[in-house]
């Protein structure tokens, strides 16, 4: 199942929702301000990011500035605790399933979530087919 984490008044969250609906993809939506994440849920997101916390923390958010944070001086577990406490620290929308995660709405990249089959091939066969 696809998960969509949104922020209330975010235009890109609305775009992501609209895109999923228009492509008939089922998803579970969650507003993490009214329904905050626990530490395990934050770790489940982090495990699908390339660089960990720096990929999901919004350094431009008001709360980040207000708390006067510095990503370089915080451990991952401190960041997890902070995100649990202050959901607005993370960027939205976040879209993810068992395989992949996308932060923010990008019309090209969200196409990764279209359902696909998998076909077996051999590289040699692919090369000869294409050359």
């Amino acid at each position: 199942m696809l998960n969509l984490y949104v922020a209330q008044s975010s235009a890109s969250s609305r775009k992501a929702r609209a895109w999923l609906k228009s492509h008939h993809i089922d998803f579970k939506e969650r507003n993490i301000n009214s329904n905050p994440l626990n530490a395990d849920e934050v770790k489940q997101i982090l495990r699908l990011t390339e660089n960990g916390s720096e990929d999901i923390i919004s350094t431009r958010s008001n709360i980040y500035k207000k708390l006067n944070l510095d990503l370089d001086n915080l451990t991952v577990s401190q960041l997890v605790d902070l995100v649990v406490k202050y959901p607005d620290l993370i960027k939205r929308p976040i879209i993810f399933d068992d395989h992949r995660l996308e932060v923010g709405f990008n019309e090209e990249e969200i196409r990764r979530f279209l359902p696909r089959s998998v076909r077996e091939a051999e590289l040699r066969e692919l090369e000869s087919q294409i050359s």
Binding site: R116, S117, V118, R119, E120, A121, E122, L123
Partner: peptide, 16 residues
């Protein structure tokens, strides 16, 4: 998988 290609991904058992 290629995000621009809708129908199918490719599974490869052996590669160099």
């Amino acid at each position: 998988f290629n995000s621009d290609v809708e129908d199918s991904g490719i599974r490869i058992k052996d590669f160099d």
